[in-house]
Amino acid sequence: MKVVYLWKNGSPVLVYKNEDNEYVYPIDKWTETKPPSGIHQPFYFDGNQWIGNTRESWKQML
């Protein structure tokens, strides 16, 4: 078992190996790169890094 993160919102997903000993990944785009702590919504993975808001910019959007 391992954890991957969905590109669209950083949700963690547990993936397991099947009977052929291969991981079964989500259909949605995913990454093994965990979103950094302190990042605020909305955020997403652009294929290289997580893009999101700081606490200060998030507060301004409220």
Rank of each mutant, 00 (worst) to 15 (best):
V4I: 11
M61H: 06
I39V: 13
P42D: 10
V24D: 03
Y23D: 01
I51R: 11
P12T: 10
N48G: 09
F43A: 02
P35R: 07
I51E: 01
P26S: 06
T54R: 05
T31N: 07
V13F: 05
E22T: 09
I51F: 09
I39M: 05
N53L: 15
K17A: 00
K8A: 01
V13R: 13
P42K: 14
G47P: 05
K17F: 02
Q49F: 06
I39P: 02
V13T: 07
I51S: 00
D46W: 07
P26T: 01
W7V: 01
Q60F: 03
P36V: 13
E22M: 12
Y5N: 02
K8W: 12
G52N: 07
P35I: 10
V15N: 03
F43R: 04
K34S: 05
E56R: 14
P35T: 06
V13N: 04
I27A: 04
G10L: 03
V13I: 14
I39T: 06
E22Q: 15
D46F: 05
M1G: 10
F45K: 01
Y16M: 09
W7C: 03
G47Y: 13
S11L: 14
N53C: 06
Y25K: 09
R55L: 12
Q60G: 04
K8G: 04
I39R: 03
G38L: 08
Y23Q: 02
L14P: 00
T31A: 11
Q49D: 08
K59S: 00
V13P: 03
N18S: 08
L6D: 04
I27F: 07
L6Y: 09
W58S: 03
H40M: 14
K17S: 00
V4N: 03
S37D: 15
D20C: 00
D28P: 08
K17T: 10
P36I: 10
E19C: 01
G38E: 09
